[in-house]
Amino acid sequence: MSASGKHFTPINYIEFAANDLRKIKTFYTAAFDWVFTDYGPDYTAFEKSGICGGFYKHDKFADADQGSALVVLYSTELEKCKARVQNLGATIKTEIFDFPGGRRFHFIDPCGNELAVWTDR
């Protein structure tokens, strides 16, 4: 319980859809060193990403323009990170731009999910 007397309930886990779990594991392992554990043919969990989560087999995907939550990753080397995800098959949706407090870009992973990467440098 916090000092205000309210319960602190942190985000603990996040899940994404992916139509190709092999492809999604290959991408996130190479791009960000995430570690995966398979739970059957239709689910894979990830860790070493800042927050644990998973991908479930489905044809849908997260698109911020359609109201999905936007997951934002952090990198101290934004330009290198952008080049790495592009070289691994991601599409850059929004080029690097400045905002109060930092810079970021948005990408679409190989299964269609939109994420962003930001830096304060």
Rank of each mutant, 00 (worst) to 15 (best):
29 T>C: 01
27 F>Q: 13
20 D>G: 03
29 T>W: 07
42 D>P: 03
30 A>V: 02
69 A>M: 10
80 K>C: 10
14 I>R: 08
57 K>R: 14
39 Y>T: 07
2 S>R: 15
2 S>W: 15
98 D>W: 02
105 F>L: 08
43 Y>F: 12
7 H>Q: 12
110 P>R: 13
44 T>I: 12
88 L>D: 13
41 P>S: 10
104 R>L: 15
8 F>S: 11
70 L>N: 01
80 K>E: 15
36 F>R: 08
51 I>R: 08
10 P>Q: 02
69 A>L: 10
95 E>L: 00
4 S>P: 00
68 S>D: 06
93 K>L: 09
18 A>N: 11
6 K>H: 12
47 E>V: 06
119 T>N: 02
7 H>C: 05
112 G>W: 05
113 N>K: 11
75 S>R: 05
59 D>I: 00
69 A>K: 05
48 K>D: 08
12 N>W: 02
3 A>I: 00
89 G>Q: 07
120 D>T: 10
8 F>A: 09
45 A>R: 02
79 E>I: 05
61 F>E: 11
96 I>L: 07
68 S>T: 01
120 D>G: 03
36 F>M: 03
57 K>S: 10
117 V>E: 04
87 N>K: 14
35 V>E: 12
4 S>I: 00
95 E>Q: 04
84 R>H: 13
77 E>S: 06
45 A>K: 06
69 A>W: 00
63 D>C: 04
7 H>W: 11
33 D>Q: 14
56 Y>H: 14
100 P>K: 09
16 F>S: 07
18 A>D: 06
74 Y>K: 05
4 S>F: 10
83 A>H: 13
97 F>M: 11
23 K>N: 01
1 M>N: 08
116 A>W: 06
80 K>F: 10
43 Y>L: 05
54 G>Q: 08
74 Y>G: 02
117 V>R: 02
118 W>V: 01
113 N>H: 10
54 G>W: 08
62 A>E: 11
45 A>T: 04
66 Q>N: 14
111 C>S: 07
86 Q>V: 12
103 R>E: 12
